Simulated assay, not measured.
Amino acid sequence: MHTEVGPVDTVDDELRAQLLACWADVSNAGGSVGFVPPVTEEGVAPYLDAVIERVHRGRELLAVLRVDGRLAGFAVLSLSVSPLRRHWATVLRVQVRPELQGRGLGRVLMTGLHDIARTRGLEFLHLTVRGGTGLEAFYADIGYREFGRMPGAIRVAPGDDRDELHLTCRL
């Protein structure tokens, strides 16, 4: 299995379709990437299109994971506009296609994302995770530390509020 993670500055129609299918599939498999299942590609499309617009404007960077040449996942780096925070970025929407999960590809994606961030001169990354998923253990294994949480910030269903955990990593 050959893996590679690379930055994408421009998203064409073919890549957009692959990203859209990935995001919907990950969401419907229970991934905490901004939605609660069930979702449709039509429901996810406006959010993906907003990401693509920010990528094209240089506000965000898309890191794409490929396995044997095929899209296997992606993550977004949201870059700071503040001159005081240009050494920081926020990691968003980290996801690996459901049928490929459990093979260490999340670690491959994050390692590649860190490499991309370093080449862009970034020194710190920030991300949030939904409480109750156990994702904080995954991120702790790759160097992230919790620095705060917002109790009940995420409502996944009536009566099911989750904490939002804030994590940071020094590259």
Rank of each mutant, 00 (worst) to 15 (best):
T3F: 00
G6Q: 14
T10V: 15
D13H: 03
E14P: 00
L15V: 04
A17R: 15
L20K: 10
W23D: 12
A24R: 13
N28Y: 05
N28Q: 04
G30R: 11
G31E: 06
S32P: 02
S32Y: 05
V33I: 15
V33R: 08
G34T: 06
G34A: 07
G34C: 01
F35A: 03
F35R: 02
V36D: 13
P38R: 09
G43H: 00
A50F: 00
V51N: 06
R54K: 11
L62D: 07
V64R: 09
L65P: 08
D68G: 09
L71M: 11
A72G: 15
S78R: 11
V81K: 13
S82C: 07
S82H: 06
R86A: 06
L92K: 15
R93M: 13
R93C: 11
L100Y: 06
Q101I: 02
G102Q: 02
R103V: 04
V108F: 02
T111M: 08
T111F: 01
D115N: 13
A117Q: 02
R120H: 15
R120F: 00
E123H: 09
L125G: 14
T128W: 03
T128G: 07
V129C: 11
E136C: 11
F138I: 08
F138K: 04
Y139R: 00
A140H: 13
Y144E: 11
G152N: 03
A153W: 03
R155Q: 09
V156R: 09
G159H: 13
R162Y: 01
H166E: 01
L171V: 00
L171W: 07
